[in-house]
């Protein structure tokens, strides 16, 4: 679960400002019922999955697919659909 950083009214940040990118502390991976599994063997690193992921959950390193970030992947399956070589397969969470 995400860390609770809510505070007393006396410590409310000015104008209740929120720090940039802090949603990284709120994991959405638990929403998933199906899980994309990436096969590096057949992946051509075309990055179609990366550019079309709504959750920024596909990690690219030096132009290649590095991994799927299961902390945030909501399991929509867009990556598997868009993959031209079927290098991503959707599997049931419980099968893993």
């Amino acid at each position: 679960m995400s860390k609770n950083i809510l505070h007393s009214w006396k410590n409310t940040p000015l104008a209740s400002r929120v720090e940039e990118g802090s949603s990284k502390n709120f994991k959405t991976g638990s929403w998933r019922s199906k899980k994309p599994v990436h096969n590096k063997e057949i992946c051509t690193n075309c990055l179609q999955c990366w550019i079309n992921c709504p959750d920024n959950a596909i990690k690219v390193k030096d132009g290649n697919i590095d991994k799927i970030d299961y902390d945030f992947c909501k399991g929509c399956g867009i990556c598997a659909e868009v993959c031209p070589v079927k290098a991503i397969e959707m599997k049931n969470e419980k099968d893993e």
Partner: peptide, 15 residues
Amino acid sequence: ITSGHRLCSGCGAGI
């Protein structure tokens, strides 16, 4: 824009 937002799974707006 980074991960951890609460748009629906497969949301077009997220893309």
